[in-house]
Amino acid sequence: MKSIIMFCGIMLTVYIAYRIYKYQTLDNGLDQLVRDGAVILDVRTEKEFKMGHISESKNFSLGTIRERYTELDPGKTYITVCSHGLRSVKVETILKEKGFKKVYNGGAWSDLKKKLDLKSSENQINTNN
């Protein structure tokens, strides 16, 4: 019984730490950046990207970003996404180290997609009224 309580306590602590991390690392206003022309940079593997992604996003995996960053325009705005938000933070940091000024963490691609779809739906409703 004691081990079950300890396990639950550990899981709760991990969950709370993840939620705090997610809250602190995700940038607000990403939907507006996308409307203003930001490029969504999906940093998952090619296989993960093929399984699902945000339309118009570009796939530059974490494993190749140090070699491929020269293919990106430092003057553009980028939003990094991955499966959970950890790799996107790493790529955000790498690009900023390489001199990119406008790089934002979008966290999990599926969460950003939902947010963008929701904003798009809200905008369509507002336009029709």
Score class of each variant (00 low, 15 high):
Lys2Gln: 14
Ser3Tyr: 14
Ile4Asp: 03
Ile5Thr: 09
Ile5Asp: 07
Cys8Trp: 02
Gly9Phe: 00
Ile10Val: 00
Ile10Lys: 01
Leu12Val: 03
Thr13Arg: 06
Thr13Ala: 14
Thr13Cys: 11
Ala17Tyr: 11
Ile20Cys: 13
Tyr21Thr: 02
Tyr21Ala: 06
Tyr21His: 06
Tyr23Phe: 13
Leu26Gly: 00
Asp27Val: 11
Gly29Phe: 04
Gln32Met: 11
Gln32Leu: 06
Asp36Leu: 04
Asp36Gly: 10
Gly37Lys: 01
Gly37Glu: 03
Gly37Arg: 05
Ala38Asp: 10
Val39Tyr: 03
Ile40Ser: 09
Val43Glu: 03
Arg44Asn: 07
Thr45Met: 13
Glu48Gly: 08
Phe49Ile: 02
Met51Cys: 14
Ile54Phe: 15
Ile54Val: 09
Ile54Trp: 12
Ser55Thr: 08
Ser55Trp: 13
Glu56Ala: 12
Lys58Gln: 12
Lys58His: 13
Asn59Phe: 10
Phe60Arg: 07
Ser61Gln: 09
Ser61Gly: 07
Gly63Gln: 07
Ile65Trp: 03
Arg66Gln: 14
Arg66Ile: 11
Arg68Ser: 00
Tyr69Leu: 08
Tyr69Val: 00
Glu71Gly: 10
Leu72Arg: 02
Leu72Trp: 08
Asp73Ala: 09
Pro74Val: 01
Gly75Phe: 10
Gly75Cys: 09
Thr77Ala: 01
Tyr78Trp: 02
Ile79Gln: 03
Val81Ala: 11
Val81Asn: 02
Val81Leu: 11
Gly85Glu: 08
Leu86Gln: 04
Lys90Cys: 14
Lys90Phe: 15
Glu92Trp: 08
Ile94Pro: 12
Leu95Ser: 06
Lys96Arg: 13
Lys96Gly: 06
Glu97Leu: 10
Lys98Asp: 09
Phe100Ile: 04
Phe100Gly: 08
Lys101Val: 05
Lys102Met: 12
Lys102Glu: 11
Lys102Asp: 11
Val103Gly: 02
Val103Arg: 10
Val103Lys: 06
Asn105Ile: 07
Gly106Phe: 03
Ser110Thr: 12
Leu112Tyr: 08
Leu112Gly: 01
Lys113Thr: 09
Lys114Pro: 11
Lys115Ala: 13
Asp117His: 05
Ser120Gly: 13
Ser121Ile: 06
Glu122Tyr: 13
Glu122Met: 12
Asn123Gln: 15
Asn123Cys: 14
Gln124Asp: 12
Ile125Trp: 15
Ile125Ser: 15
Asn126Val: 08
Thr127Ser: 15
